[in-house]
Computed example of a mutant assay.
Amino acid sequence: MRKKKILFFIYQMGAGGAARTLLNIINNVDRDRYQPVLVTLNFDGSYEHVLKDDVTFIKLDTKRLSRSIFKLASIIRREQIDIVFSTIPRVNTIAILARIVSFTRAKNVIREADNLGGTWKENIQLLAFGLIYRLSHQIISLSEGVKDNLVKRYKLHPKNIKVIYNPVDIENINELANTGTISPEHEALFTTDQKVLVTAGRLVHQKDHHTMLRAFALVHKDIPSKLVILGEGPLEEELLALSKELGVNEDVHFVGFQTNPYVYFQRADLFVLSSVHEGFSHVIAEALATRTPVVSTNCKSGPSEVLDNGTYGQLSEVGDEKQLARNIKQVITLEQQDISTLQEKGFERANTFHVKKIIKDYEQVFNNVL
């Protein structure tokens, strides 16, 4: 029996949660039944080197998503693809159109990864995406909150949407955390009596590092502490200036993108997320997998689902630096016995999203579509 070919299409195998999710699916999908093919635009991605050797990896000779439709259609025909899997709205749209013009029997499975919309312009755009999404064969939402948003703003029928949480590769995360090393120039950050807070994510408005810095300044007044920020982005200079304005710049450290963030998570006392919106918040589940306590904003829609409405980590209102600071203080001043209990509860929660469990949900979708 011929293995079914699944083409995974993404902008690039970069440093974001969407790329990590695709990586986990691609590397763990059953090789007895499926043969993965990865297609990206002509960019270098941070996760390319950890793809399994048996993955067919194709880069299109363009960096423009709008010019990739016919190139992708050609690959769908040539590789005799059975399923085209994609994520992120514009990429999903291109994948659906490419499948249509390929004139093959391939099927589209698309994944929505965030709570988008809000302004009238964005909402109209989402309605247009919704019209195209209806031409797919299965829509996957990575959380119940994102599903609600698909129904509300994309005007999609809930029966056509299946919720599958992000897969977390627990064993791989722990191996990297336990055997990896922190860059020598960062080692001193963790050999200290100060409490160490860590966060990870693109330095963009969605992640709201401004609120995090203001919250950290409130914590810093009362508790000797450091904030280690993993990630890159256009707001770095602005955030550096804010840390100086707040008088905490000597204890705020921008360490850039790290291919192994888990060793940083594991060495920290607390992981903090201050996002304005998320789809699932993969990074929270990964932090729990390293047995690191979590404090997060209660943004739509992922953190409350990952943390089960605060059972496995503190939740704060979006943009409220005072509440975020109070929650941070509450956790980092706990007795060691209470910290240990929190760590084990978090690790138990992370296993809810274990890749071995989640991949079976994806494989069931692939089977149903075929």
Rank of each mutant, 00 (worst) to 15 (best):
D82H: 04
N309I: 08
R90M: 15
Q336N: 14
A106C: 10
L116P: 06
V196R: 06
F70C: 06
N178A: 12
I69G: 02
R267G: 04
E175G: 10
R111V: 15
T333H: 03
K226G: 09
N166D: 15
L213H: 09
V365W: 01
I358M: 11
L227Y: 04
K5F: 02
T297Y: 02
Y165G: 12
F9V: 05
R31V: 03
S316R: 01
P36M: 09
D269H: 13
I139N: 03
L38G: 00
G118E: 09
Y47R: 14
F85Y: 14
L246I: 01
I173S: 13
K107L: 12
R64Q: 13
G233F: 01
D148H: 14
T93D: 06
H49L: 08
N123W: 01
N28G: 10
Q337W: 04
S274R: 05
T56R: 10
L288H: 01
L131I: 11
K159Q: 07
L23Y: 00
H137M: 03
N309V: 07
I182L: 08
I173A: 10
K357N: 12
P224K: 10
S274K: 05
L270R: 11
Q364V: 13
V306N: 07
D82C: 03
K300H: 13
H137S: 10
L142K: 14
E317V: 13
S183G: 10
Y133M: 06
L342W: 08
E112Y: 05
D338W: 07
L127N: 15
S102K: 12
A18P: 10
I26F: 03
V219M: 10
L246V: 05
I6K: 00
D54L: 00
